[in-house]
């Protein structure tokens, strides 16, 4: 587990006893996502996904990696918000090693499938790649 954020997310989602509550909460969380600058919503920052578009930006401060993102689909945006909440502000190595098991525990794992085509699987890879890159720079 990367940090207390994962535990907090699992606890939050446990409050809902049906999928509708979980999805409503997910969509709400999307509204708190630190948004990427609209000028950066371009092909360079776009994660290739089949259906919903996802844009991701990463930067480094004092040895920690921070992320901003956006998506044109609300559910995808909520899922990205979860990833950003867990991974943003972490050291590169922690991001690289993060198993992100919480997605399974909040019953959102189906969205991680590469065939789901929401760009989320590619998004995690991209976040970890950024972490690898920043690790090289800081060393």
């Amino acid at each position: 587990m990367v940090n207390g954020q994962e535990a907090a997310i699992i606890e939050e989602f446990a409050l809902f006893d049906d999928w509708m509550g979980r999805y409503e909460h997910l969509i709400e969380l999307g509204k708190d996502l630190p948004l990427i600058d609209p000028d950066m919503q371009d092909d360079t920052h776009r994660i290739r996904g089949c259906q919903s578009q996802v844009w991701l930006h990463a930067f480094e401060e004092n040895g920690k990696v921070f992320f901003k993102a956006n998506s044109d689909a609300a559910i995808t945006k909520g899922l990205i918000a979860l990833l950003v909440r867990v991974l943003s502000g972490q050291a590169p190595q922690a991001i690289i090693d993060a198993p992100l098991g919480f997605l399974d525990q909040i019953e959102m794992k189906e969205h991680l499938s590469p065939t789901r085509k929401n760009g989320l699987d590619a998004m995690i890879k991209q976040m970890k790649l950024y972490a690898v890159a920043f690790k090289q720079i800081t060393h």
């Binding site: 509708m20 999805y23 259906q51 919903s52 044109d72 689909a73 559910i75 995808t76 085509k117």
Partner: peptide, 22 residues
């Protein structure tokens, strides 16, 4: 303005299979 991906995901939870995308 609801994205088709969002529409398809919720419909799927309800057991309704539609295609979304291009």
């Amino acid at each position: 303005d609801i994205h088709p991906y969002d529409t398809g995901t919720i419909l799927d939870r309800l057991g309704i299979a539609v295609r979304t995308g291009h």
